[in-house]
């Protein structure tokens, strides 16, 4: 459904020097730097898949989405959405896809939400039954009627965002691109938006491509994860596969009697190769161990043998930690602050 092949986007950025003198200088010189926002991204998202496209700020996510939606031309490489090259066939692609750019509105700023929907209905030539079915769904999940006749410019971010998500799905698009769709929503509305996306995906087989910094969005909507870093895809697979890719796991324990925490930490680090331990509270210690060299059983056995445990947990590797490791891998190859 969504295919990217060696997609590259470079921007020319005029070089500006800092300060007033520098600004004056830029009046006379027109030097520019070339910034590579996306460098050779390739991936394939099958129809009906809900994929999360994630990466740190500046990883080139939005730029990629803009090429996939036909807003920008790639510098090189190509991509197709539902068989069309979006930037070459913009209008036909636009009829096939729905898009939410979290920071921009596709609604008519001076009109009530209901009017924007009526306009979109005519622009997309949406058949009556489809329009009625979708409006009923949005009413059920998002309570759109509550937005009344307030012009969009006067809505709160949360009110506007749910209308944006609904608007992007109104014409039953084959694929929907959601760029930060739950920004500014409270917990209940976040749930509602996720439910809407999941329901549309289940009923109509809509392909979903989501970019978000909200881990909740990713885990509750997506069955696939694409991680981009420094402009290239570094991981594609299921959420579980990504979690299993964690190269360190942790065991947290609390103990009584025995050595003081400093000695305990020294003991653990000396006897278990590659392990780092740190104190979280007075007698509560977090042990990070490399999954390649030790198993959870070995670590637990060691702890049971040397400490009088009062509590012990082995938390699941959370997506956030895994992602943080991936994001910082190249910038800071050794230690990862947690």
């Amino acid at each position: 459904m969504i295919v990217a092949e060696d997609l590259v986007k470079e921007f020319k950025v005029h070089r500006r020097r800092p300060g007033l003198i520098g600004s004056l200088g830029t009046l006379f010189s027109r030097e520019h730097d070339i910034v590579r926002a996306v460098s050779g991204v390739s991936f394939r998202i099958l129809p009906g898949v809900r994929a999360a496209y994630i990466g740190a700020n500046g990883a080139g996510k939005s730029t990629t989405v803009k090429m996939l939606t036909g807003v920008m031309n790639p510098t090189s490489g190509r991509c197709t959405v539902a068989g069309l090259e979006p930037y070459r066939d913009r209008r036909r692609t636009a009829a096939n896809i729905g898009v939410v750019f979290g920071q921009r509105s596709q609604l008519w700023w001076d009109l009530p939400v209901a009017d924007s929907f009526r306009i979109l209905r005519r622009i997309h030539d949406i058949p009556d039954p489809v329009y009625r079915r979708n409006m009923a769904l949005y009413q059920e999940l998002l309570d759109l009627d509550a937005l009344g006749t307030t012009p969009v410019r006067q809505l709160s971010l949360g009110q506007r965002m749910r209308a944006e998500v609904a608007a992007s799905l109104l014409h039953d698009p084959a694929a929907v691109f959601l760029d930060e769709p739950t920004v500014g929503l409270d917990l209940v509305l976040k749930e509602a938006v996720r439910e809407l996306v999941n329901r549309v995906n289940a009923q109509l087989g809509t392909t979903v491509m989501l970019t978000s910094h909200d881990i909740g969005d990713i885990t509750s909507i997506c069955d696939q994860v694409l991680v981009v870093n420094h402009g290239a895809v570094v991981h594609q697979g299921t959420v579980h596969e990504l979690l299993r890719a964690a190269d360190t796991r942790a065991v947290v324990f609390e103990y009584q009697d025995g050595p003081d925490p400093h000695q305990a930490i020294a003991l653990i680090e000396a006897r278990l190769p590659g392990v780092t331990a740190r104190q979280s509270e007075c007698r509560r210690i977090i042990v990070d161990y490399p999954t390649g060299r030790l198993s959870a059983r070995q670590v637990m056995a060691f702890l049971l043998e040397h400490f009088d445990l009062t509590d012990c947990v082995a938390p699941e590797p959370d997506l956030e930690t895994v992602l943080r490791r991936i994001y910082t891998r190249r910038a800071e190859p050794r230690e990862v602050p947690v």
């Binding site: 036909g70 807003v71 036909r92 636009a94 009829a95 750019f101 921009r104 509105s105 596709q106 622009i123």
Partner: peptide
């Protein structure tokens, strides 16, 4: 403002 992006998402000339 960059809002041209959303205008480009409409299936019209």
């Amino acid at each position: 403002r960059g809002d041209i992006a959303t205008s480009l998402l409409r299936p019209v000339n």
